[in-house]
């Protein structure tokens, strides 16, 4: 029977690998697991590490994943890889940054800057209008 298994490695930013393999090794959260053809259906989360795909010809390809999820169906293995390195603390730090950026943007906004910008824009527009009028006059 089938001595190979269909492997798809996809990340949010694109497909990383797709093809037949003799065996796949993935870093699951509970420890590294090797997936041979006809492995039992399994769903698990991955931690950061290396996914190694042993091709039917015998050579190996390896991919780095920042974590993700693994799904094993009877004839198909799907690795949903994270491109980003993540951990709970890291996510929280990122969230803090996004929150701060919003706060800063909201607080340091002097309305005077707004007005100055608008005035400059108005002045530019006026010059343009005058130019257009001039052109019209010359043409007619």
């Amino acid at each position: 029977m089938a001595s190979t298994i269909n492997v798809d490695i996809v990340s949010a930013e694109g497909q990383i690998f797709s093809g037949e393999a003799a065996m796949v090794f993935v870093p699951a959260t509970q420890g590294e697991i090797g997936v041979a053809p006809r492995h039992a259906p399994l769903l698990t989360l991955l931690k950061a590490g290396e996914v190694r795909v042993k091709l039917p010809a015998g050579d190996e390809q390896s991919f780095y994943v920042g974590g993700g999820a693994l799904e094993i169906q009877p004839t198909r293995v799907t690795v949903l890889a994270d491109t980003a390195l993540r951990a709970h603390d890291l996510d929280e730090a990122q969230a803090m940054k996004a929150r701060q950026q919003a706060e800063e943007a909201l607080s340091d906004r002097n309305s005077t800057i707004d007005i100055a910008e608008a005035q400059a824009e108005l002045a530019r527009a006026m010059v343009q209008l005058r130019m257009i009028e001039k052109l019209r006059k010359v043409r007619s």
Partner: peptide
């Protein structure tokens, strides 16, 4: 990049 979107 996905990294920069995780925060928000």
């Amino acid at each position: 990049h996905l990294d920069s979107l995780i925060g928000p």
